[in-house]
Amino acid sequence: MSAPLRGRRIGAGRTPWILVLPALAGVLFLLLPFAGLLVRAPWPTLGARLLTPEVRAALLLSLTTASVATAISLLLGIPLAWVLARTSFPGRRLVRALVTVPMVIPPVVGGVALLLAFGRSGVLGRYLYDWFGYSMPFTPAAVVAAQVFVAMPFLVISVEGALRGADTRYEEAAATLGASRAVIFRRVTLPMVMPGVGAGAVLCWARSLGEFGATITFAGNFPGRTQTMPIAVYVAMQTDPQSAIVLSLVLLLVSLVILVGLRERWVGSL
């Protein structure tokens, strides 16, 4: 019964071209650059270029820092999301707005702000240096800090949304069974919002992996120490475009593997 209906709808030319044409143009615009990457890739020398120490170091640094940044974001972001979703205190709305600021400001500005806060003469960095002799800028830690700064808000927003959508009566049920608030959070709330946590973690990781502006401003560009994949791509583009293509392909592949691998489990809610 539905088949002839569907046939008639398409055959009768009812499809609104005013929507389909821009949609097609949009898809092409998104896909063509990838096609360009694949077409222009130096396939014969791909393996050799991939195995250079510089590429391996940049890839390793990117994967490590993005993972550490995601772990830190989870550790700080989930409690922050809980506080924003489940408690009320004066200024809660303001805090929530401030938390999302890094999502909208240009990352370079974030990098400058991080320097002003944690630089050797920064608001906080001054004391870190005076008391402990520790200087964060231009270290792998600075790479992680830059990534956490720009990526954690994605996780917070995602988890907060999941918490707001979760049915709090399950938490009440747990309380009647004798569970303390900490136990309720760990054994009832967290499992309930796991899809949101997973989606947020993937977003956070992907954003960290691609971080460029804040990183190069706050952590600089030291091969092997702070030169992440995106920075390596940018640098290679100036001197050796073929390598830039290879690096871009690697980044693309890593992102796709993560997205496809986790889609079934978590990203369904994205």
Partner: peptide, 9 residues
Amino acid sequence: PTESRPIGM
């Protein structure tokens, strides 16, 4: 508090 009451619900 709820979690300390000898109740079942």
